[in-house]
């Protein structure tokens, strides 16, 4: 009896739950850092491109992009005024405990979105699709989006925030096994023709490609591939990794630089994710994430400490598993 009481007292005193106020405060910080601070992996790649680009127009654009990264950090301004559609990716440890549960988590993320829309400021992009009504806080029907994944045997939670534009750079096509890799390459070139001309998708960009699954899954994976992997990261399947490298070469030898000027600096990276598809199909989604890569991740521990980082670490071996367990 005595032992049990002692244990309960101990549990009450010690933090074992990730508290709502911790989530709210850190999510505000995440939005702020994401809007202002360019991740190092992207900055270094653009620096390399600027030093190697020979077309004067393309080079000028790349140099201004680098200036802008620095100005944003120095002035604490959003690097791009189109602060996109803020969204969240939550990876929740199987042993993690969240105060108020998932409903409280979602409320904190919605609250942080509204708070930082005013404080940073973010542009209030979210409107009702028919009436165009704007709450001026980026919160509304199905907004902001929260996607979830889980991780076994851990008690932390990761929240990644992404601010990505929403008008250009996304495409879907139902390919078939007979179209195969050549069909995928053609689709890749078509998406370049559509979105790199005049720089509509704001390249240099990371191109995410989701192959397989269903229509919605390949599009979702293409967005995750574009937004949640570091520049330079290769897929864990060697065959897919080789295709990623081949498409980077293809994309940067297609004649395009930034803004659709002639050049060779269009593609920061290509990230491909695969999902098991219908035996008769090969659906493909393509998404581009521009050079203003607004993404930041925070890891929440049960003692309510928070660690911020630039690598979302979204595609864990568990997330990419093929087996039953």
């Amino acid at each position: 009896m005595y032992g049990t009481d002692r244990y309960e007292e101990f549990m009450e005193e010690k933090d074992v739950m990730i508290r709502a106020e911790t989530i709210l405060a850190a999510s505000r910080e995440l939005n702020t850092r994401a809007a202002i601070e360019i991740p190092k992996d992207v900055q270094q790649k653009v620096e390399k491109m600027a030093s190697e680009e020979t077309n004067p127009l393309s080079r000028y654009v790349l140099e201004k992009i680098l200036d802008n990264y620095e100005t944003a950090i120095k002035d604490r301004s959003p690097m791009c005024a189109d602060t996109g559609l803020p969204r969240y990716y939550a990876k929740i440890g199987n042993q993690a405990s969240i105060e108020g549960g998932m409903v409280a988590l979602e409320k904190s993320l919605r609250q942080a979105t509204a708070d930082t829309t005013a404080s940073i400021p973010l542009r209030p992009n979210r409107v009702h699709p028919f009436s165009r009504k704007d709450h001026n806080n980026n919160v509304g029907l199905h907004a902001p989006t929260v996607d979830y994944s889980f991780e076994p045997n851990v008690d932390w939670m990761d929240i990644t925030v992404v601010h990505k534009g929403g008008l250009f750079g996304g495409e879907y096509r139902m390919l078939f096994p007979a179209d195969g890799i050549p069909g995928l390459k053609r689709f890749f070139l078509d998406s370049i023709a559509e979105f790199l001309r005049r720089g509509m998708s704001c390249q240099p960009a990371v191109i995410g490609i989701g192959v397989g699954g269903t229509k919605d899954v390949c599009v979702r994976l293409s967005k995750e591939a574009a937004c949640l992997r570091l520049v330079g990261d290769r897929n864990s399947e060697p065959e897919i990794a080789r295709l990623e490298e081949e498409l980077i070469d293809l994309g940067n030898n297609a004649g395009f630089g930034p803004m659709g000027f002639p050049g060779k600096s269009a593609v920061l990276d290509v990230h491909i994710e695969a999902a098991y598809a219908h035996t008769g199909g090969m659906p493909v989604g393509i998404q581009q994430f521009c050079y203003a890569q607004r993404r930041k991740t925070a890891r929440f521990f049960p003692d309510n400490t928070v660690e911020f980082r630039e690598d979302p670490r979204w595609f864990t071996p568990y997330y990419r598993r093929e087996t039953i367990d």
């Binding site: 390919l175 078939f176 007979a178 179209d179 050549p182 069909g183 001309r197 030898n253 004649g255 395009f256």
Partner: peptide
């Protein structure tokens, strides 16, 4: 238009990349 002049230059390099790639089985 600066962009259109750029396109003329890019197309010389870009369009040949389509050589040998199949038209998709399902058209739109």
């Amino acid at each position: 238009s600066l962009f259109e002049q750029g396109n003329d230059e890019i197309n010389k390099k870009f369009l040949p990349l389509y050589e040998g790639l199949p038209i998709p089985a399902l058209k739109r």
